[in-house]
């Protein structure tokens, strides 16, 4: 098939159209995609020299990012998080939720609301871990007892 191999000039469609118009390619020899391209032209013409826009990349920030930053500044040992488990919110997410709730309900300032929220969240986490340890230790003693009975 005789056609231009200069991929940097025009698009595949304009090159084939030019060949057909000039008579060097008969209409029967047109590529299979020709009509499909005509019916559904791409949104951006695939030209090699399509210029890039000059606008700067915008930054994505959310209002709650302030709370997030405060949280990670004040909490040094963040517990590990399972990223694929979306049912359980992380400690930071809980803090953000509580903080915004306190801000709305009690008309508190951001700093006050954040301190309250952080205290409640941390104390909750502590009590949870303490109860977990307790239950583990009781299970351990049960096993010990069981072992003793089998030995006896």
């Amino acid at each position: 098939m005789a056609h231009s191999r200069l991929e940097k000039i025009g698009t595949i469609y304009t090159r084939i159209t030019g060949l057909i118009r000039a008579g060097s390619m008969s209409l029967e020899d047109r590529p299979l995609w020709y009509e499909v391209y005509q019916a559904f032209p791409p949104k951006y013409p695939p030209r090699y020299d399509r210029p890039a826009p000059v606008e700067p990349v915008r930054n994505i920030f959310y209002p709650e990012d302030v709370i997030r930053a405060k949280f990670y500044k004040s909490v040094k040992n963040v517990p590990s998080v399972n990223l694929s488990d979306r049912s359980r919110p992380s400690l930071c997410q809980k803090c953000i939720e509580l903080c915004t709730k306190l801000q709305k309900e009690n008309n508190l300032e951001l700093n006050e609301a954040f301190d309250q929220a952080l205290n409640t969240i941390l104390s909750e986490a502590e009590t949870k871990s303490a109860s977990k340890q307790e239950s583990e230790s009781t299970v351990g003693s049960d096993i010990k007892l069981a072992n003793q009975t089998t030995i006896n």
């Binding site: 056609h3 191999r5 200069l6 991929e7 698009t11 595949i12 090159r15 084939i16 590529p31 995609w33 391209y37 791409p42 951006y44 695939p46 030209r47 090699y48 020299d49 399509r50």
Partner: peptide
């Protein structure tokens, strides 16, 4: 060069210009 259309997944470090 051979006038074959291309569909391509372009990540943020790719050049999308020649991809149809």
């Amino acid at each position: 060069k051979m006038a074959i259309p291309v569909i391509g997944i372009v990540d943020s470090n790719c050049n999308p210009n020649l991809i149809t």
